[in-house]
Amino acid sequence: MTPAEELVLPWRPAAKKGRGRLGLACLGGLVVTALGADLLASDLPLAVRVDAHTYLLPALTRPPQLRLSNQGTLAQTAEWQLGTPIPFGPNQTFATATGRTDAAPWAPDREHLLGTDELGRDVLARLIHGSRASLSIGFGAVLISLLVGLLLGVLAGWYRGLVDACLSRLTEMAFTFPTFFFFIALAGVLRFTSALPLVIGMGLLRWPDIARLARAETLKLRELDFVLAARVLGASDARILWRHVVPNALPPVLVAATFGVAGAILMECALAFLGIGVPAPTASWGELLFQAQRYLVHPGAWWLAVFPGLAVAGTVLTMNLVGEALQDLQSRS
């Protein structure tokens, strides 16, 4: 930043620092939620004593003796139980502790803070468990695109010439290829039985940004003295690339990757919205939104569409905040 710019923007760095911290805190919260989903929302309690047996963490261990129980029924039969904060599992249908019998979907109330879907499944519980699918798809896809993009970008920048020309065409191809079409067709071919094809497919389509950046960085780095010094010492190309070029090209690439996670989460949701997502009954945010579409015509159950969207928007915002903070950190150093 030039001194003149510093004058124009005295308020920016501080404001951005706060934003970055907020982003990191939210990201931490999201990861904890995803990892601890089973302890936050489960049909089984954290601890329970029933039939002269004490079960510790049945929410995780799922003992066969409690197969037919949930926190609602255990409240009647157990000597004592320590419940989870949200006493419903993500796939628990017509989940209720008060024995209500009116037709689902139930609107948000004290029992179901964010309401339920038409099968009586708690929306908050499904959102908490859905964060697993959404976050792991986001991070998984970016990890793949990071590997592919870094490899191709660094090679193109290092060897230039024919290699660069070929890889540039490949980048252009992945960039212009109609992504949604690709997934719609892929879903037709593979009949997704897990989220894995989604993750791999997204990773293989989203690397061009990263490759571009890695290439530009490598073009810059290869002219620098420390690379020359390494070569003078007799280092092989592979060693120079791995030990000297890649680590130095990494920071700007990681910024792009952070924004990439946000993009991948958005894309998972957009695909799920089109009906191509993780297979049922796994909860993912996109799948929740897809289910909510049915209520557009009879919009009684607005909560089904509003809350998953807020979860997605909040997560994407978090990743963008973190990405912006990282970017800021680099432009200052």
């Binding site: 946000a262 958005l266 949701c269 957009a270 919205f273 939104l289 909510a292 579409q293 557009l296 919009p299 607005w302 569409a305 509003v306 998953p308 969207g309 997605v312 928007a313 994407v316 915002l317 963008n320």
Partner: peptide
């Protein structure tokens, strides 16, 4: 604008439709 950039298109579509 920063928030707008993070909000998914299809969700906005659903919301305005709703």
């Amino acid at each position: 604008l920063f928030v707008a950039y993070s909000v998914p298109v299809f969700w906005v579509a659903v919301m305005v439709l709703l």
